[in-house]
Design a binder for these strands. Structure first.
Lengths: 210, 210
DNA sequence: TGATTATGACTGACTGGTCAGTCATAATCG
DNA sequence: CGATTATGACTGACCAGTCAGTCATAATCA
């Protein structure tokens, strides 16, 4: 409509923070569609409604932009988990049930799953990102899950500590769901809810005292 | 009966089959180290001890080379699994135990795991490869596992069919081990044997009739 | 047999295209 | 105004894929 040649920023236009946010959002879309190597900084800029050079006013390099993107989205859902698992009132089984819910809603069902997928596919070539995610997400989540299971075992609610030794097992089906979606979603859909319910059923039966 | 063809070759030359093999091996090393996008065909050639142009005498493009690499390594271990699961004599629990062994030896502990990792990271941008793997590996393995569990349930050896509905759950810890190695191996090692034993323990406890 | 020609596997310099990152310039703000 | 922010043409590096030429060997000839 109006813009014919030069829609320049006007008074009260967006702040640097908003600009950064816009770039990150655009970067998310472009990196997800193309992967790191095939994504063009120019496309990110275009999608954010700015010129390529402007991206470099906010990020030192394409790589820095990518790392900022991953980092900015990795953390939030972990807090929900922290809060949940601190709760000592309910049964341990319920706690696990709700932990699955958090994973499902906070990761698998949210846009965040795409970023996690990106971490998965690009991580091997970005050790810094892998390390960041390990230090800030994995190495926090594992002990939390471990503590919940250990407590359940102590209280006599759970009959085996296999899951306390390897909380990874609790998470692996979600990883599978993620990978399945990335690779096979348009060949054969996976019933993620069914999968998670079956997972929970198996876990809880396995730990049930008899 | 024998070769009607008389290949004309230079001094240090080898047969076409061996050449292709050498290229695939070199490609494996280079693609693993760099990923598809960052791998240079020239490096593959150099590693195979030939010139770049020669690669194109055997493969139409870098992409074709990559697809040939993945395809050539995906199939073998599946046959071991087929043979194993056809065996109706032992207990179903034992069958699952041995299936894990096959996965562990045939994939996780072999060089093949690297190729699987490559499939994982590059698959999203190579739908053809993802489809190939789905059609030739996944869609064969899942029904096999399903059949074993279903039989166990019918025979009264297993108390729940959750695993028959989602054989994916049986495989997901191996996927996790693979991903962990790709991302975090030099930050924190994962005890894969311990993980698989814990997995088996949980699965079997869960299905144990009581 | 040794000399000559035919073959095709192999080479690597070259081309054409892509794209990250730069910077002189321009627009806008305060 | 000068300061701040944005632009996009440009550069330099990189690399997939090509192809005209090389040369070891096989086939044929004398």
């Amino acid at each position: 409509m109006d813009k014919s040649k030069k829609p320049r920023r006007r008074a009260g236009s967006i702040s640097p923070d908003e600009r950064v946010q816009a770039i990150l959002e655009a970067a998310c879309a472009v990196f997800l569609e193309k992967g790191f190597a095939n994504a063009r900084v120019e496309d990110v800029a275009a999608r954010a409604g700015i010129a390529k050079g402007t991206v470099y006013l906010h990020f030192a390099s394409k790589e820095a932009l990518f790392e900022a993107l991953i980092s900015s989205l990795a953390l939030p859902p972990l807090d929900g988990l922290t809060a949940l698992l601190a709760d000592e009132t309910g049964s341990s089984a319920d706690l696990l049930r709700r932990a699955i819910g958090i994973f499902k809603d906070g990761v698998l069902a949210s846009e965040r799953r795409h970023v996690l997928r990106l971490l998965l596919t690009e991580g091997p070539r970005f050790p810094a990102i892998a390390r960041f995610h390990h230090d800030h997400v994995v190495s926090r989540a594992i002990p939390m899950l471990r503590a919940v299971v250990a407590r359940g075992v102590e209280r006599g609610e759970f009959a085996t500590d296999a899951l306390a030794r390897f909380p990874h097992l609790f998470v692996s089906p979600m990883l599978l769901a993620l990978v399945w979606e990335a690779l096979f979603s348009d060949i054969e859909t996976l019933d993620v809810d069914g999968l998670m319910n079956a997972h929970l059923e198996l876990i809880l039966r396995a730990m049930e005292p008899r």
